[in-house]
């Protein structure tokens, strides 16, 4: 077991005066894959946003330690530069900024080093091939006019290029066809190593099939109500959440 990468202690989060997260505890070590499952509206996306300190969510209690550093109140970009990445459930569209330029810019910010153009282009080409992405898309405006699947793959591409220490994937598999889910899975496999970790938010186990999942957490109404192994994911896929709801 690797050393501690992320430690969330008693996290309470509200938005617009509504209490959403009610005391989350979660520890992720290097080398692990964690899964969060939970009914719609239970607070999964909120958890991801809170880790990256989205200013639209208010932390009313708790701390988040990343790599032995308190990141609870850091700005989103600082947290990202420390190595946290999130694949968005609904990626934003940015007209007029091409995928390549965006990635080059972000990579420079995240690594703090100048990007070697040739090497970068090669890397990009290879990743896109592995993700079955249309190579022409890199010159298009970021996510503008992309299909749902293309947007999600583009998130995985960003993860591979930015190479974070912790990747949070918020329903990256939702709305994807079987082949695309397999591709996303493959992307996660490519990314994963002993020194990083992945937190997958999902509703089904297809994306998990080829991955070695360490822990599955069930999130209901802002609380983690059960933690288990990959068996738990299968059980939930079959029986739903009713057992865990009050």
């Amino acid at each position: 077991m690797g050393s501690k990468l992320l430690e969330i202690k008693n996290l309470n989060v509200s938005a617009e005066d509504k209490q959403i997260l009610k005391g989350i505890d979660l520890t992720i070590n290097k080398g692990e894959i964690h899964v969060i499952m939970g009914p719609n509206g239970s607070g999964k996306t909120t958890t991801a946003n809170a880790i990256l300190n989205n200013p639209n969510y208010t932390k009313t209690g708790g701390t988040i330690i990343f790599n032995e550093e308190d990141i609870t109140n850091l700005k989103t970009d600082e947290i990202a530069r420390k190595g946290v990445f999130m694949s968005f459930q609904l990626p934003e569209e940015i007209p007029g900024i091409s995928v390549t330029n965006f990635l080059k810019y972000a990579k420079n910010k995240v690594t703090g080093e100048p990007v070697k153009i040739f090497q970068f282009k090669e890397e990009l080409k290879q990743y896109m091939e592995s993700l079955n992405m249309n190579p022409n898309n890199i010159e298009r405006s970021l996510n503008v006019g992309f299909s749902g699947g293309e947007k999600k793959k583009n998130e995985i591409l960003q993860m591979l290029v930015l190479n974070p220490k912790l990747a949070i994937l918020d329903e990256t598999d939702s709305g994807l066809d079987v082949d695309a889910i397999r591709t996303v899975s493959k992307g996660i496999e490519m990314f994963k190593n002993e020194n990083n970790a992945v937190l997958i938010i999902t509703h089904n186990t297809k994306i998990l099939r080829s991955l070695e999942v360490d822990y599955v957490h069930v999130l209901v109404d802002g609380k983690i109500v059960k933690t288990g192994t990959s068996e738990l994911a299968k059980e939930i896929e079959e029986n739903g959440y009713s057992k865990y709801k009050k």
Binding site: P55, K75, T76, F88, I94, P95, G96, I97, K109
Partner: peptide, 24 residues
């Protein structure tokens, strides 16, 4: 928020959005 989650500062994110808007 999306851009900041990629390590880009708030100021740079705004400039990027504006540059993109002006690009055409």
């Amino acid at each position: 928020f999306y851009l900041m989650s990629r390590g880009i500062s708030e100021e740079d994110a705004k400039a990027m959005i504006v540059r993109g808007f002006a690009y055409p």
